[in-house]
Every structure is written in C-alpha cells, then in structure tokens.
Design a protein around this nucleic acid. Structure first.
Lengths: 150, 150
DNA sequence: ATAAAACCTCAATTAAAGTTTAGGTAAAGT
DNA sequence: ACTTTACCTAAACTTTAATTGAGGTTTTAT
C-alpha cells in the first residue's frame, strides 16, 4: 500500500531543511511526492534519505544540477536499493578525494607560500590549480612564464 | 617613486582573472589602484599577491566579504609585509583544517553510510555537521530517531 | 463550529560572484 | 594619421540556491 504518509512539514523538520527548500527540490526534480485529497504533498519515507544525500553532496561541493544528474540513474518513485546509493556515492568519492587533496596541499603551503616570494611561479599551489576543481577553463593562472596550458 | 605601473589588463592576464573581476574586487574594496593621466587604473605589483590570495581563499571556501574583513587588517596602500600575510593566512588555516577534517570524515563514511541503514542517527557524519562549516544555524539535523516523535 | 496552524501556487526577492552590454575615451600599432 | 586595442562607467543580466510574500485552501485543535 502507499506509505506516502509524510507531510512536507514533517519531512522538513526531520531533514532540517525549510519547507520551501523541499518545494524547490521537487521543482528541480530531486525529490518526488504524491498528493492527498486536499492537494497536499505526501512523501514516502525514503525521501528523507534523498534529502540527506542532497545535503551531504552539497557539503562536498556538488551542485544541485549535478546531484539531479546523479539521481537520474535512480528509480524515480520506488525506494532505491543500497547498491543504488553506493554506486551514486562512489562517483562522488573520487571528486571528494581530489578536493581533499587539493585543500591539503593548499593548507600545507599556506603558511610558507603566502608569506614568501614564491607567489609567482609554477611550483606554488596557490597559483596552480593542479586539480582542476571547479574551473577547468582558462584557469587561475596564465602567468606569462609558467605557460603550460596546464 | 610610484611603481604603480601595471595596467588592469596586465594584472588580469598575470592573475588569470577577467578585467571585470578586478573592477569588481576594487568596488568591493579588496584591491586598490591609482589612476594615470587618462583615468586608467594603474596598479602596484603587490596587487598580484592580493588577487592570488583572494583566489586561494576562495578555493578554501572563504567568501569575498570574509576576505575583505581579513584584508581590513592590512595596510591599504602600502605593500603588506610577510608577517601581515602570514597572520592573515593563519586565521584561515584553522578553518581550512576543519573543512578538511569534515570532508575526510564525509569521504570515509560515504560508502558505508549512504548505503547502510544508519541514515537516521547521531553517529552519522552525513547527518551531523560536526564541524559547523557554513551553517551553524538550526543545522542539518534535528532528526530525533527517524521514528515518529513528530 | 470556529480558529489556528499547516498547506497550496506563483511571482518576486535575496545573496554571492561575477559577466555582459552600451556608449564613450585613451593608448598603441602601422 | 588612422585604426585597432585597451580602457572607462553604469546598469543590467546570469547562475545557484533558495527565501519571502500574497492570496487562498485544508487540516487540526479546541
């Protein structure tokens, strides 16, 4: 039978997000709901996991559009299996590792590099994106000498 | 003497940012310039370090407003010393470490946690911000027990 | 049977971090 | 000299991730 018994307010409270955010996510196709006789949203419990994963992914730096893409591989209305979630998360793990490595390098050089005179060259992580995190475009540095197209 | 000899285009190229971004930063008070006889911006070389640090800080997740606050402790028009920059960066180092730790925890639990049934409790990093990174507000989780106490 | 709380839609607004456009001036290259 | 490139300002627009508000309906509590 339908376990679509959670109201939007309940989900909001349990997930720690605003009702308006849930509306917004639904609009974006990130979550789904059915309606009761009075046109109010009713959710199945697995929406909570979905929202939690949205929140987790956002903390990793994944945008809603990317999350939506990832979610596209999940069953729309039936609760995804453990494997579904695992697979989804494994795709993010690599990027998360990359981000962590990059931040670590940034941290490690932060003290030395900001203060020193190196702020002009190819060996400095502040200048060199190294892992192209967000912009793989023209990139943070062209910097006349160190002119590799990365 | 004035070494205010860099044009906005030169700075843009050397820093790998758009001219419009430099205008924007100036408007925000993050960088400063003087003008030549024809009203064009001229920069002293230390603007390059400033911009680089803006970019580095952004990669750490620091917003422009926060950067502006941090920069407020620097001398406005004279080139900041090594110590100035060091001190500035040390403030960010702690937050960067926190962010790294949080992302590491997220990564470590990602596989197990997303797939498992734990997405309901207090020991799960996906639910628990732990280091309150961006929102220290009502936070990602209220989530009593995933049981109905609401 | 009310009244309050929760819910509905749709449009407008916010905030951050810029970019783009328009209309015009300055500097550089040939 | 002339033309192209660089630069100027100001305002409008873009994207992401929502929040807020207006005006109305449904549920729940008393």
């Amino acid at each position: 039978m339908d376990r679509q018994n959670l109201s939007v307010g309940q989900v909001a409270k349990r997930c720690g997000v605003a009702v308006s955010a849930l509306h917004f996510y639904e609009n974006k196709g990130l979550i789904h709901s059915s309606r009761n006789s009075g046109n109010q949203r009713r959710y199945s419990p697995d929406v909570i996991r979905r929202v939690s994963i949205i929140k987790a992914a956002q903390k990793m730096g994944v945008g809603l559009n990317e999350i939506a893409e990832a979610f596209a591989s999940l069953p729309k209305h039936k609760a995804p299996s453990r494997e579904d979630w695992q697979q989804l998360s494994s795709g993010w793990q690599a990027m998360l590792n990359g981000r962590i490595r990059y931040l670590e390098r940034l941290r490690d050089y932060l003290t030395g590099c900001i203060g020193c005179g190196c702020l002009s060259m190819a060996n400095c992580p502040i200048y060199n994106p190294a892992d192209k995190l967000e912009d793989q475009g023209p990139g943070p540095v062209i910097l006349e000498q160190a002119n590799g197209s990365d």
